[in-house]
Design a protein around this nucleic acid. Sequence first.
DNA 1: AGTCCCGGTGGGAGCGCTCTCACTCTGTGC
DNA 2: GCACAGAGTGAGAGCGCTCCCACCGGGACT
Lengths: 363, 363
Amino acid sequence: MDTSPTRSLPRALRQVPGRPSPTLEDLALAAGVSRSTASRAINGGDRVSPEAQAAVDRAVLALGYIPNRAARSLVTRRTSSIALVIPEPDVRVMMDPFFAVVITGITEALRETDVQLVLLMSRTNDDSARTLRYLRGGHVDGAIVVSHHESDSWARSLAETGLPTIFIGRPWDMQADVTYVDTDNEGGGRLAARHLAGIGRRHLATVAGPADMTAAVDRLRGWTSGLAAAGLPAGPVVHADFTTEGAAAAARRLLAEHPDIDGIFAASDLMALGVMEAIQAAGKTVPGDIALMGYDNHAVAETASTPLTTITQPMVEMAVKAGTMLLEEIEAPGSHPEPVIYSTELVERASTSVAPTASAANA
Amino acid sequence: MDTSPTRSLPRALRQVPGRPSPTLEDLALAAGVSRSTASRAINGGDRVSPEAQAAVDRAVLALGYIPNRAARSLVTRRTSSIALVIPEPDVRVMMDPFFAVVITGITEALRETDVQLVLLMSRTNDDSARTLRYLRGGHVDGAIVVSHHESDSWARSLAETGLPTIFIGRPWDMQADVTYVDTDNEGGGRLAARHLAGIGRRHLATVAGPADMTAAVDRLRGWTSGLAAAGLPAGPVVHADFTTEGAAAAARRLLAEHPDIDGIFAASDLMALGVMEAIQAAGKTVPGDIALMGYDNHAVAETASTPLTTITQPMVEMAVKAGTMLLEEIEAPGSHPEPVIYSTELVERASTSVAPTASAANA
DNA sequence: AGTCCCGGTGGGAGCGCTCTCACTCTGTGC
DNA sequence: GCACAGAGTGAGAGCGCTCCCACCGGGACT
């Protein structure tokens, strides 16, 4: 393969190594057409004769031609790449399967295109500024922002730049009329209330998420309206930070102050785990004494010592949708698509079974 | 839109339809210098008088100048981006916290640079070909490949292209003399053997990982040599696929065929969970009847019903190292750095405590 | 004095691509 | 017969940047 006498000569100049990759000019020459025709043939072959097209195709194969993206980008003003913006990703946040799903989904949406995914994570405010500069700088054709409490400023700033942007999860600041995809958190909360009421529980409480996250707020709103619809009182509400530990602490308080509770809705499965811990520590059982529900249909919901009834949401679809929507908006700027909301479903498991607790899970 | 006299950023007149972003030419004009001088001032200011530098700096701020990456890239042959290659990422694989750690680590290494991370995931063979083409195409300055059984071909192909590449996890094909970072899996396996022998267990077995993954093979080799060093017989070895279910099945076989086993080393925490299931299903206890070890120090190791003794490895550091090594190699091509191996440590928990089992974990 | 060097500078030549435009060469309509 | 459309083509002009090189001065040598 490498016939050059000095294989250990990685000359400072990168282009030196033997074969400088063929340019469009080379390709045209090899195909016996002009650069213009070669270019047309490569880009979808509009107004190209079959013969010319075939000649170019052959030459591409023969030369192993790969278009230079930078050169193309320079004139088209397109980069064929989009950014996934993840604000403040400490490792713990990144661990959340949510991101794996989002990344997988977006990648899926990008599969048939040659658009690349650039990961932009900003840990500090400083980073945020850099990230924003990067986005404004025209380095990507669009962006998907994983929304959460900190992302408000993003919504505004990005909307101002005119860069096509899709948010995953409804952002706080709706002024900026951003496009987003989300799941029906409110509906999910309502489902939870209806279910617990439906199995005859009457003293219901919830461990809600942080009040500055739309998902948490929406779930709580749904829960509250669901209780009302079932003719039940609003019941106690405590907030936690979506972590197991935080929820455990919150649940301990809850149980101490309201010993008659017979049903709890935790706004995430991870939190439900903490709640379960607290319940058991208080000497009570799930679902015997207290029926418990989670949210997310996280893997742990199924493998928990008492498998959790939970709310499932089509996260992959949502992520894919975000990707395709962004591609569409890039293709046809100015079209301001409506937000897409995915509906949620109840997944029933042992933690709300009517029968007395029975320490399930043996295969 | 909204007429609010927002206190937002200095009137972003950037991407507004008619307003083309300022070019270097504009900048030079505004600064009262030549394009060349402006360019020099922007790129580290070598051979630029303080006055000129200051003038350019001022102009940058005033105009909100952002260099056009494509143009720069076209001439420098550098893209200021690197790829993270993840072969065959079904969602399940992506869920592995490992990737979160890798991504976070690399991002960390890239923080102070303006290098961007491009995510390349190839699900199918078809994708692999495209990914490879992308990498060869000079679209990135280097690549980090998350190694595992499928990555052999990658090692070869990439080494051939001369693209600076770092593998995370020792690749199979060492011919290609690739650079990699890894943890000392062999040492970890040895640690496990020594520990179980040390607490007096004599009938030891292991549930190893797939025989086509270097990490699994190395851990097994270490385990075997550790047993020998402790003067113990090799003991039974079964292979599983690093999943909980697979390990449970393997462990059932193991226990059925070797009822006298009193210690098991599972080559991952997830597998250890499956093994624990099988042990309990067989009516035995951990660690009372059988001491159990995992590997990875995965979050589940700590939260398991009986917390797992396991092997911990500095994964974040490893990922950061991969990033910095790649940057170095990009900077100074041809330097073929030695592989870096991170040592592992034992984390002792209840699953190997000498005292009889006591269903731990209440705060 | 002359020569050299060297920090500082600006002009110009591209990097590899797309795109406009002018051109040729059919085929069609009058 | 001529004009005209329209498909197919190629030359040329950049896109915004870096880098080479020629240039200009003034201080340090010969």
